[in-house]
């Protein structure tokens, strides 16, 4: 299959390892991976702040850049939700409406794509650690992704998954929210970290790098031993 991998701006700049891991996985499964260099961002920061006009400009470039793609796989639940759910709304009653819907229909979040679209759950990975999983809000509640990453983790050799009580609670990132209301944001992150620490896991795994940045930011500041890692990186570990 010809797969267009959409790498969120975030992952591109700050977490390229996660992006490269996705490339490796998809290629190993025998697919052709493409990457559209002209796209920088999905437009979510502007959209979430209420600047829909500006967001539309950014998003229009994404829609056009991906028009010829067959299938789009996106390495973040958050940007996945943006394209899948909010593009149709953002372009409602505009000339790009149809194209936005078409893009939404062919866009899949990474773990969901592997499990539901390709039917792959065992990637032959080995990661002998105790981990806990953080469900990113957008992946979980906008896209309904809950079991897919867990199915993938269940086949990783040596890995033991301990669920934390607050697995489904928000990490407190929320994009610009984390800067506009830093204290609320950090309090929310604290709840998350405390719950993760209770599991005595070595790693917090998630499909969303932005959540991991928030969680890691708090953990490092508080000098806690727990580390964060993207799901794709776990899945390429040997």
């Amino acid at each position: 299959m010809r797969i267009h991998l959409y790498i969120p701006c975030f992952v591109d700049q700050l977490f390229p390892k996660a992006g490269m891991a996705m490339v490796e996985i998809l290629e190993k499964l025998g697919h052709t991976v493409e990457f559209e260099e002209s796209i920088a961002c999905c437009g979510q920061p502007a959209f979430n702040s209420g600047y829909w006009e500006e967001a539309r400009k950014v998003a229009a470039r994404t829609i056009e850049g991906l028009e010829s793609a067959e299938t789009v796989v996106i390495g973040s639940g958050s940007c996945g939700a943006m394209i899948h759910k909010f593009y149709p709304e953002l372009f409602k009653e505009t000339p790009l409406s149809e194209k936005a819907n078409a893009l939404a229909a062919k866009t899949f979040e990474f773990s969901d794509f592997l499990v539901r679209k390709l039917g792959v759950t065992d990637l032959g990975a080995k990661f002998p650690h105790k981990v806990t999983f953080h469900d990113g809000c957008h992946g979980l509640r906008e896209l309904g992704i809950k079991n897919q990453p867990r199915q993938l983790l269940s086949h990783v050799q040596g890995l033991s998954l301990v669920e934390m009580k607050e697995a489904e609670s928000c990490c407190g990132f929320g994009g610009t929210f984390s800067a506009k209301f830093p204290l609320i944001s950090s309090a929310m992150g604290d709840v998350k970290c405390t719950s993760a620490l209770e599991t005595e896991a070595e790693y917090i795994v998630s499909s969303d790098s932005s959540c991991l940045m928030q969680i890691q930011g708090l953990l490092s500041r508080q000098k806690k031993p727990l580390k964060t890692i993207h799901l794709a990186e776990v899945l390429v570990s040997r």
Binding site: D12, Q13, P16, A179, P182, G189, Q216, G217, L218, S220
Partner: peptide, 19 residues
């Protein structure tokens, strides 16, 4: 607003694009 309570991630030497 970020660093009052949190550390920033280290910016890696090479972005995904570059790689």
């Amino acid at each position: 607003a970020w660093t009052q309570t949190r550390d920033l991630p280290e910016i890696p030497a090479k972005s995904f694009r570059q790689q």
